[in-house]
Amino acid sequence: MKKYLHIYKVTILDNIQYVSNIVLRILSFAIIIFVLFNLWKYMYSDQETINGYSKSQILWYVLITEGIWFGVRNKNFTNEISDSIKSGNIAYSINKPYNYVSYLIVKNLGDITIKSLVFVLVVSTIGTIFIGRLKFTILQIPFVLIALIFSALIFSIIDISISLISFWIEDAMPFHWVFDKLVLIFGTIIPIEMFPNSIKTIFSFFPTYPIMYGPAKIIIDFNFNIFCKIFLVQGIYLICTIIIMNLLYKEGVKKVNVNGG
């Protein structure tokens, strides 16, 4: 456990050196938020509430889910995993005295920690200035933190698992595209309540429920029952994704062919 904590600490320190890179991401985030705010403002131009969401609630929802997306997603890292499998460089990582997949999770969490904290600040600032204060009490903080940490963990594990597909198919990028769009459409831009009833049930089984919808719902419309339900779904998802990731690695690593040199 100590070595993983050390990896986490070193990765965070490494990322502090490149904190200026986050500025670009904040700019991209602000532009996307601007477009989505315009879209939702247009949708609310002739109605007060849509499917139980007021205008300020939906704007906060979009802001939070996009914030999670920008804070937790680590495209460069997941590309690195695929590249190291393709090039055979993975051979240098799997013979180290640690569990490779645990190392990947810890390193990814180290990568996103600073970024996520910055986005918490950015989201709160943009929201407070452009939407108005959110009904939020200090008592909610522990529940929100739990939901966000679980969300980051599940997102990381799924992304790493998709990259591990490179053991079989050289380029895992197309699978990342589809997963990304699944997350964006089913829960980031539009909350579950806006979907037709037939899709709502299917949506509850999608990874976007524990990753995006859950934490955002706990922040904008907290009640303990909702938290328990989301926590349960996140727990189940975490266990299932860990099992799938380990299986993918166990089977995939057998396919590694190193040509020396």
Partner: peptide, 14 residues
Amino acid sequence: ITNVIFMILNNASF
């Protein structure tokens, strides 16, 4: 093939 087909699916999802 995966690049082309998945890109079509990717766009269609919207």
